[in-house]
Design a protein around this nucleic acid. Structure first.
Length: 753
RNA sequence: UGGGGUAUCGCCAAGCGGUAAGGCACCAGUUUUUGGUACUGGCACUCGGGGGUUCGAAUCCCUCUACCCCAUCCA
C-alpha cells in the first residue's frame, strides 16, 4: 500500500506491522458452507485476501463447519469457486474448522481443569430463562458448581455419545450478570448426534462458533480476524477464551466492519433461499440474484466486482450502496474490453427501394476511443431491420432518429430517408419504404452533403441471425425490499426474435459484446447453443434520451428536514444542585462547565483537589471538564499519570502567560502519556510562548509569500482562510507563537497590504 | 429498558484542532457515425440537534435525538 487512501483496517494492520506486533500478517476468509456466496462474501473476500496481498502476508480459506446439520460439500465447492473466480489464491491454505475438533476439544478440557468451564444440564428453555434479559441479570445454573472431576467425566461421556441431544452442554464460567449478554456463561459445546459431511460420525459433541472461531484463528496463526459488525458483542468472548487459556503469543485480534447492502435487492441467506425455493427466480445462479453465481451468469466480470468492492470502501457505518455504483463498474470495465456489434431487439422492416443486390461492409469492432484492433464484415441488402423505437412518425422535440422528414445514418453504412410508412389495418407501422444515398457510404468520402443527427443500428433481414435475448431489470420494485411482496414482477423480459449480425455467431470473438446503443450482453453459459443462441443483458448503456423522455413524471420530493426533538435531561439531585450553585455563584464558572462538573463525581473531586493546589477556578475547571474528563472516561483517577498538583502547575503557566492554551493541551498530552512534570516538559521541548511581534512578523511574511493564491482568495472574500494562515504560522513556530497575536498580525498584514 | 456500535452531499466515503478529499448519481457544455465513451465545469459557507472549551471545532467536553447489533444448544 503506498499513496492510496487507507481504510481503518489497513491502518490497524500497518500500525501492528510497524510496532512489530506480528512478523507477517495472516487473514482468513471463514464462511460457513451452508449457502451460496453472494456479493457480500465478495466484499469479505476482497478485504481479507486484499489486505493479505497488500502487506505481503497470506489469507487462508477456512470452512467454518461446526454445525453438522446445516453444512454440505456442494457449498464448499461454490465457495472455492467464488474465491477462485474473483482471482484469489489460497495456495495450500484451505482449512476446515472440523480439522481442529481434537485440538479444540483439548482446549475445552483445559478450561474445565482451570475451573473455567462446566457441564450444564439445564434444559434449553431453562438456559434461556436463566440468562435474564437485557436489563436484568441472569442467574447461574445449579450445575455450575460441579467439581472438575465430574465435569471432566461428564464431558468425556458427552463426547462418547452417552447422552441424547440437548441433555448437557459445556459452558464457560464467566458472569451471569454481565451487561454483555453474550458473556453470560456462553455455551461452548453442544451434543449433536448428526453426520458431519467431513468428520463423519466421529463426534457427538460440536463446538459453538464462539469457542471454535477464536481457537481456529489462533491455531492457524491468524493475526487479524476481520468480521462483520454483528459480531461486535462476540469479541469479548473471543478475547476471554484466548486470554483465559493463556496461549503463547502472538494471538489474533478481532476487528469488525460493516456488511455490504445494495438497494433494490436482498442479501440475507434466508431471503435469497426464499426466492429460490418459491421459484420466483430460476435458481441460485439466476442472473437477477446478487449471488456470485448470478452475477457470473449475468456476465459480470470479476474485475468489475473487485473494483466495486474497492470503491465502496470499508467502514463501520451500516449503509446501503446504490446499485448504480455497481453498474458503473461493469460498464466501465467492459467499455474498454469488449467488441461492438449490432443487434435489433424489436425489428421494424425497412425496404430500401433504390438499392439492388448486396454487399459487405467492413466495420471495426471497436470505436475510435478504444485502442483495440479488429473488424468484421456486415452484409447489407435491400431488406433491413431497424429498431422500432428508431423511427417515429410524430417525434418529440429533440428526437434524432428516423422520421418522415429526418434522414438517419445506418451505422457503418449509408444514410437513408423515409419515403413511405406502411401500416396494417389497426394503424400499426409494419414497414418503412426508404431510399438510400449511394454517395453517403461510411468510411468513404461522403459526398452526399447530408447532415444527420444520429446513426442507428440495423441488420440485413436476409443475413441476420435470430437469437433470444434476456433483458433483466431489478428484481425488486422497492429500494429496501422486505421480501417476496416487494418483487418487481416485470424483472425479466425474454425477447425471442431479436436479430444479430452474423459475425456475432460465427466469429466467436468473445462471449461478451456491446450491442451498440443497447448495452452489454453475455452469451448465456448454460442455455446458449448454436441452434438457439441466448444472450443476457449484463447492463444497459447510459441513456440520456430515454431518461429525458421519461423524466417528466418524476416529481421532486420535498421531504423537509426532520425537526429534532430535544429529550428530557435528568434533573440534578440535591447534592449536585448544591455543587452547581457553588460553582456558578462563588467560583464564577459558566453554567455548562458547572453542570458537567456537578454531575460527575470523579470530575468534581479532581477539580476540588486541583483548586486546593492553586486558586484559578475558571481555567482549572476548563481543563478539567474538557481534557481531564476525556481521560477519566476510560480510567480511574488512580490510574492517571498526572495528579491534581500537576494540573494546577499547568494552569499556573497558562495564567502567567508562559504558555498558550494550545501549548497547554500539548503539554497535557505529554503529561498523560509520560507522567512528566509540566514545567519539565515545557523546558525540555522549549515550548515557551513567543509573543514578540518582531519574531513573528517575518514568519508571517514568509507564509504569505509562499501562498500567493490563497492570499488572492482571501482578498477576494474568503475570510475563513485567515485560519489557514494562522495555522501555517503556528506550524512554522512549532505551535509556540501566541495565537492571539498571530491572528491580529496576520489580519493586519492581509488587510493592510 | 442494560450493554455494544454508528451518524460528514441523493448514495458510498476521506478527514484525528488550522482551506470540507474522492467515487457514484445528478445538471450544464465540448468532442463523437453508439443520445455510449472521453474531456471541461457545476454540485456540503457546513459535518444528526443544542450547548461548552479554544484565536480557531466535523475533529476535544457535556447533553439530547435517530438508526443498527445482543436474551439460537446458528454462524
Amino acid at each position: 500500500m503506498n499513496n492510496k487512501k487507507k481504510d481503518f483496517l489497513r491502518t490497524i494492520v500497518e500500525n501492528d506491522l510497524k510496532s512489530n506486533k506480528y512478523k507477517e500478517i495472516v487473514t482468513r476468509f471463514p464462511p460457513e458452507p451452508n449457502g451460496f456466496p453472494h456479493i457480500g462474501h465478495a466484499k469479505s473476500i476482497s478485504i481479507n485476501f486484499g489486505i493479505a496481498r497488500d502487506y505481503n502476508g497470506h489469507c487462508n480459506l477456512r470452512m467454518d463447519d461446526t454445525n453438522p446439520t446445516k453444512e454440505d460439500t456442494k457449498y464448499v465447492e461454490a465457495l472455492e469457486d467464488a474465491v477462485k473466480w474473483l482471482g484469489f489464491d489460497w495456495g495450500e491454505n484451505l482449512y476446515y474448522t472440523s480439522d481442529y475438533f481434537s485440538q479444540i476439544y483439548a482446549y475445552a478440557i483445559e478450561l474445565i481443569k482451570m475451573g473455567k468451564a462446566y457441564v450444564d444440564s439445564l434444559t434449553e428453555e431453562e438456559i434461556r430463562e436463566y440468562r435474564g434479559t437485557v436489563t436484568e441479570a441472569g442467574k447461574r445454573s445449579k450445575y455450575a458448581n460441579r467439581s472438575v472431576e465430574e465435569n471432566l467425566d461428564l464431558f468425556e461421556r458427552m463426547k462418547n455419545g452417552e447422552f441424547q441431544d440437548g441433555e448437557h452442554v459445556l459452558r464457560a464460567k464467566i458472569d451471569m450478570s454481565a451487561a454483555n449478554m453474550k458473556m453470560r456463561d456462553p455455551l461452548l459445546y453442544r451434543i449433536r448426534h448428526a453426520h458431519h459431511f467431513r468428520a463423519g460420525d466421529a463426534w457427538s459433541v460440536y463446538p459453538m462458533y464462539d469457542f471454535a472461531h477464536c481457537l481456529s484463528d489462533y491455531i492457524e496463526g491468524i493475526t487479524h480476524s476481520l468480521c462483520t459488525l454483528e459480531f461486535e458483542n462476540n469479541r469479548d468472548i473471543y478475547n476471554w477464551v484466548l486470554d483465559t487459556l493463556e496461549l503463547k503469543p502472538p494471538r489474533p485480534y478481532q476487528y469488525e466492519f460493516a456488511r455490504l447492502n445494495i438497494n433494490y435487492t436482498v442479501m440475507s441467506k434466508r431471503k435469497l433461499l426464499e426466492l429460490v425455493d418459491s421459484k420466483h427466480v430460476s435458481g441460485w445462479d439466476d442472473p437477477r440474484l446478487p449471488t456470485i453465481a448470478g452475477y457470473r451468469r449475468r456476465g459480470y466480470t470479476p474485475e468489475s466486482i473487485l473494483t466495486f468492492c474497492d470503491q465502496i470502501g470499508i467502514a463501520k457505518a451500516n449503509s446501503v450502496v446504490d446499485v448504480a455504483q455497481l453498474e458503473f463498474c461493469i460498464r466501465d470495465d467492459l467499455n474498454a474490453k469488449v467488441p461492438r456489434v449490432m443487434c435489433v431487439l424489436d425489428p421494424l422492416r425497412v425496404t430500401i427501394e433504390n438499392y439492388e443486390g448486396s454487399e459487405e461492409i467492413e466495420a471495426p469492432y471497436y470505436p475510435h476511443d478504444v485502442p483495440k484492433e479488429g473488424s468484421r464484415k456486415i452484409p447489407f441488402s435491400k431488406e433491413l431491420y431497424i429498431e422500432r423505437a428508431d423511427f417515429e412518425e410524430n417525434p418529440l422535440k429533440g428526437y434524432f432518429r428516423l422520421t418522415p422528414k429526418q434522414p438517419v445514418r445506418l451505422r457503418h453504412g449509408y444514410i437513408i430517408t423515409c419515403k413511405e410508412v406502411i401500416k396494417d389495418a389497426d394503424g400499426n407501422i409494419t414497414e418503412i419504404k426508404a431510399e438510400y444515398y449511394p454517395d453517403s457510404k461510411s468510411g468513404t468520402q461522403d459526398t452526399s452533403g447530408i447532415k444527420v443527427k444520429s446513426a442507428i443500428q440495423w441488420v440485413s433481414a436476409t443475413d441476420a441471425k435470430k437469437v433470444e435475448v434476456r433483458l433483466y431489470d431489478r428484481l425488486f420494485k422497492n429500494d429496501a425490499p422486505e421480501g417476496i411482496q416487494d418483487l418487481n414482477l416485470d424483472s425479466l423480459h425474454v425477447i425471442n426474435n431479436a436479430f444479430v449480425e452474423p459475425a456475432v455467431i460465427t466469429q466467436k470473438l468473445d462471449e461478451r459484446f456491446q450491442f451498440e446503443r443497447l448495452g452489454y450482453f453475455y452469451a448465456d453459459p448454460i442455455d446458449y447453443s448454436d441452434e438457439k443462441p441466448v444472450f443476457n443483458r449484463i447492463v444497459g448503456l447510459k441513456d440520456s434520451w430515454n431518461k429525458k423522455t421519461k423524466e417528466k413524471k418524476v416529481t421532486p420530493k420535498p421531504e423537509a428536514k426532520k425537526v429534532q426533538v430535544d429529550g428530557e435531561v435528568t434533573p440534578m439531585r440535591e447534592e449536585e444542585k448544591a455543587f452547581f450553585n457553588t460553582y456558578t455563584q462563588e467560583l464564577q464558572l459558566n453554567n455548562e462547565v458547572a453542570n458537567t462538573l456537578a454531575r460527575d463525581k470523579k470530575l468534581s473531586q479532581f477539580f476540588k483537589e486541583t483548586l486546593s493546589e492553586y486558586n484559578s477556578p475558571v481555567n482549572i475547571a476548563n481543563i478539567v471538564t474538557n481534557e481531564v474528563a476525556r481521560e477519566l472516561k476510560q480510567k480511574e483517577p488512580s490510574e492517571l499519570k498526572f495528579k491534581p498538583k500537576e494540573i494546577a502547575e499547568l494552569v499556573k503557566m497558562i495564567d502567567d502567560a508562559t504558555i498558550s492554551i494550545k501549548i497547554a493541551k500539548d503539554v497535557f498530552e505529554e503529561m498523560n502519556k509520560t507522567g512528566q512534570e509540566p514545567a519539565e516538559i515545557v523546558k525540555n521541548k522549549g515550548l515557551v510562548q513567543i509573543s514578540d511581534p518582531a519574531v513573528i512578523l517575518p514568519i508571517i511574511e514568509e507564509v504569505i509569500a509562499k501562498n500567493p493564491d490563497n492570499v488572492e482568495k482571501f482578498k477576494a472574500g474568503n475570510k475563513k482562510l485567515l485560519g489557514f494562515f494562522v495555522g501555517q504560522v503556528l506550524k512554522a513556530t512549532g505551535g509556540k507563537a501566541n495565537p492571539k497575536i498571530v491572528n491580529k498580525l496576520v489580519a493586519e498584514k492581509l488587510n493592510g497590504n
